[in-house]
């Protein structure tokens, strides 16, 4: 079912720096496709701190992170970027001057340059470090609920202490054979109304609380979960029989497939030449938190400048026959999709 698209530049990651790169490229007449693992744009600003004010963006004495992202989207809009949300960039291949980026859907996008603006890697569920968990994901181990019917009559263990864990324990208590809620401490971080409901359902025996306990191990047979070992914070362990585990530990980032893109890495960052932001692979650039060079600072303003620096060499790679003509935005006028002169 794979489809192919073509563009000038593929941007991996729709955090603040990836979004700013749409403008930096558009300003020079280049079209972009943007791939983002989450279903929303904004990277850390949206996923981790949308309400927090940022104080170090020049020109904005204070701006909420979510508001900054809204403005970056508005600034990028005239360049008509194509977004691929909920898609991870999983593979990079090269045929002559053409780079192809494959997405988790199997579709590919061909371009003449790739800008990696992947922050700390793709955001996804924060997976408990339990042996064998990956093989059970989607069947017995879940990080979100798509279809409550799948849990009817089942024994379910829900782990975590926030709104998701508590709300799903409440919602599924009607359908499940049993619900055990496992959390590392007595206190839950959730809406007061949910806490009240949880108390009530616990008293009625519809939800069993295991606190302060944590997940310790999984036991599976033929690809199906059978039991979950939990450990008391002071060490004693016990097994709970269960068909499903729902784990709600927030989100985490992981470089994942980017490790195999062929670009030079140092730990979790991609090495670049700071004069061009190009990686060890020709026409593959890295900007924002993921890029590394001497004295690198992981800041939004630095990332913005890195994207502008990258766009210049991207232009030279895409239009090797056209001289790079420098123009201020005030000269070029209101942004619009236009071929560069």
């Amino acid at each position: 079912m794979s489809r192919h698209a073509q563009t000038d530049v593929v941007i991996i990651g729709a955090g603040p720096i990836g979004l700013s790169a749409i403008f930096a490229c558009g300003h020079l007449g280049m079209r972009c496709h943007v791939i983002e693992a989450l279903s929303d744009v904004g990277g850390q600003c949206t996923a981790l701190y949308p309400e927090k004010p940022i104080y170090d963006i020049p020109g904005f004495p204070a701006i909420a992170a979510g508001e900054l992202i809204a403005r970056l989207m508005a600034q990028a809009a005239p360049f008509a970027p194509t977004f691929h949300l909920g898609q991870q960039a999983v593979k990079l291949t090269r045929a002559g001057d053409i780079l192809s980026v494959e997405m988790s859907s199997g579709s590919t996008i061909a371009a003449r340059a790739v800008i990696i603006a992947a922050g700390g890697g793709a955001f996804g569920p924060n997976r408990p470090p339990l042996a064998g968990i990956e093989r059970l994901e989607g069947t017995s181990v879940h990080y979100w609920v798509k279809d409550t019917a799948a849990f009817t009559g089942k024994r379910i263990v829900i782990a975590g202490g926030g709104d998701s864990a508590v709300d799903w324990a409440i919602a599924l208590s009607e359908h499940a054979q049993s619900i055990t809620l496992v959390h590392r401490r007595e206190r839950f971080r959730c809406a007061p109304a949910s806490l009240q409901k949880l108390d009530e359902l616990t008293r009625r025996g519809l939800i069993a609380l295991k606190v302060p306990y944590q997940l310790a191990a999984l036991q599976a047979e033929a690809g199906k979960l059978e039991a979950i070992e939990i450990g008391h914070i002071d060490g004693q362990r016990e097994w709970l029989e269960a068909e499903h585990l729902l784990a709600f530990y927030g989100i985490a980032s992981d470089l994942g497939p980017l490790r195999d893109f062929g670009v030079g890495l140092s730990e979790e960052q991609i090495l670049v030449d700071p004069a061009t932001m190009e990686t060890s692979e020709r026409s593959v650039f890295a900007v924002g938190d993921i890029s590394l060079y001497p004295s690198k600072q992981k800041l939004i303003v630095t990332g913005f400048a890195e994207a502008v620096t990258a766009a210049r060499t991207v232009y030279e790679r895409i239009f090797p026959d056209r001289p790079f003509h420098f123009q201020h935005s005030t000269d070029r006028g209101p942004p619009q999709l236009q071929p560069a002169q």
């Binding site: 926030g162 590392r184 401490r185 971080r189 944590q214 914070i233 002071d234 530990y249």
Partner: peptide
Amino acid sequence: EEDMLDQGFDVNR
């Protein structure tokens, strides 16, 4: 900090 520790594993007293 306690709230963020809820996202950790092998959390201890």
